[in-house]
Write a protein that binds this DNA or RNA. Structure first.
Lengths: 204, 204, 204, 204
DNA sequence: GATGAATGAGCTTTCATTCAT
DNA sequence: TATGAATGAAAGCTCATTCAT
């Protein structure tokens, strides 16, 4: 033990401890997201997650109660992060410019956070895993559908619901294809096409 | 028990054995599709599949070499069934009428075979399961993209690739939403909207 | 069904049935010996044995009560065959010539029946399998040790027991080496050396 | 529980972990040797080995990758131990005294390590298990045959190869008989006879 | 007698979770 | 807080044995 480390033995402040805990928690969360997204919930093991995060298996259990709790925490965080980005856009009146912005932001999100979306879809597809989650996701989808409807109504759509539905399907479809590994289309080009397309309602 | 079956103690004929095997193989295949679609590949256990099919665990292994082989067989059959339905439509010149027909057929397929599509997407989302499959699915997606492109070119699209991409995204998105349990929108209404919409190119 | 086979429906005589049964029994016995000798008792499966013999699994159970009973039958037959060959030599007074003959006969046996000896040793080495067999083998070893002792006493050995022991060890050792797969020494040459050597007692 | 251990809640040091692992590894290795030697490779179950070692089934897999890897480790260790004992004797010029010593050492080894030799022979007898092992054993047998040949040549044998072969067969035979459970001859007496006998060449 | 589909106990192996240190 | 050895339930898979035909 060096002189220095002896000096450092002075107790860390509560705040320091909390910061360290928070950092480690985030490390685990991010690592687990990657691993879950790659192998699926059942296919990913706590061992793998721990070793990817460079910590011991046991430590994970001091941050999360169980594997299931870890999954929930990941999804909660993911949903929260996304809502944070969009919430200030969603309740305003939406202009075509704002919609463009909104979509651009979404695509940035998607590219930065592909793993989350892959996990999201994988889980959404599996009723038995979905059950663990109750309605974690309702909050994610509903307000954005409403916003789309309002937008198309504002743009003079004769069938704003159909327009919103179409837009939703298009975005889901694009997200899906981006996220599916075997499919590496040129996202930047696609973005342009989609944004242009979604601006105008179909039902005029 | 009939008179005949009491007297007839001779062994089953080859044909009888083959029938039994074919029927049971199909039973296992169908049951396993349901269970995989519900719990995912790793989340579904052979035990569960067997008990759903009303057979003993061991019997599955007399029909399929392994859990992985079972998955592959399910997907092969699924892909084959779908290709069969579409192959006579795909290489013709496509008129709007034929496209309508094609989409209607697809939606019928989808409604009859939701479990397959759920499994398809769930697997496509998980690189580590996907690897087991090599490119089982390439054959499913490629020809149908080409057909779409040809159609929109024929309809005077200035950007047939973009139109095909949009159409693909829309269909994927709809399929996805239909297949995700928590979302039970009125498919019949959606179908009408989609079919109308996809008939005309966006880029004129 | 052909004319001919209809005519042949006349019941077979009891004797014919028994002959067929005996032949099939021997077929199973010989096949099982090979398979047991290659894979060991636990490593050999009834399926493998049946398919090597070209019969259905179930049929084996109409000839032998169980896998264990099959093993016992193999060993009983093997021991019986060997005793048959030697019994007329064993209780006579043994001359050097007869000993030579006896050893030659043994080596012929060994070469014709390597699988039996491999199985014999493999089983003798495993207390837990050996237990199934009670003292099937005592009868095989004892009389031949006595014969050796008598022989060396007759040849003027000062320690006939030691001489018999040596001879026994040498024969076991040779048999063992012949039977172990990875060791393919020139048996014909070895035979000569051994026979010469065993003729004379060591303790004079 | 000591004062110290109550207070000391710091994690085990690397060295402590290594010690635990080494000890447990040896425990598993030794226990498994006994169990394999008793029941054979296929007849011994991991469950049985674990319960004999007083550990949970799963723990074995934290020390060895598989049942097969466990077997290999046992044999590697056994071969290494034996080679260690003999290597300093094997490459010297061998006098009768050294041969006596060598044989005595071998018999001590044999008595201490009967289980290893039983396993060795049982495995050598089963081609299908032997295949797992590649030529683990070549290194064990070859140098010792060469040493024997050199010895008998030095002692004036006219046929040192035949003498070595005989010696080898005798030793194998004795080992075999010692190791076979149902045969409990007086090893000490046998040793004396063998050692005396092997000292002099047969071919003078 | 002959077949092979079917069973289920038991095997090898994995992994979420616990716990002494 | 942090470690990783340890557990045991449950997974995938095998195989001796049974039985309807």
């Amino acid at each position: 033990m060096t002189e220095r480390s002896v000096k450092n033995m002075s107790p860390r402040t509560k705040k320091q401890f909390e910061e360290i805990r928070q950092e480690k928690r985030d490390l685990i969360l991010n690592t687990a997201l990657e691993v879950f997204a790659t192998h699926g919930y059942h296919g990913a093991s706590i061992s793998t997650i721990a070793s990817h995060a460079g910590i011991a298996k046991g430590l994970m259990y001091s941050y999360f109660e169980s594997k299931e709790a870890l999954l929930k925490a990941i999804l909660e965080k993911g949903v929260r992060d996304i809502l944070e980005v969009f919430e200030h856009m969603v309740n305003k009146e939406i202009t075509p410019e704002i919609l463009r912005k909104l979509l651009q932001t979404f695509f940035v999100q998607l590219k930065e956070n592909g793993a989350f979306w892959r996990l999201y879809f994988a889980i959404a597809m599996q009723p038995s895993v979905m059950e663990l989650l109750e309605n974690e996701f309702e909050s994610l989808v509903n307000p954005y559908m409403e916003t789309l409807k309002r937008y198309y109504r504002g743009q003079g759509s004769k069938n704003p619901e159909a327009d919103a539905l179409l837009a939703h399907a298009i975005i889901d479809g694009i997200t899906l294809n981006y996220v599916m590994v075997h499919h590496n289309f040129d996202m930047n080009k696609v973005e342009q096409i989609i944004i242009e397309r979604l601006e105008k309602p179909s039902y005029l």
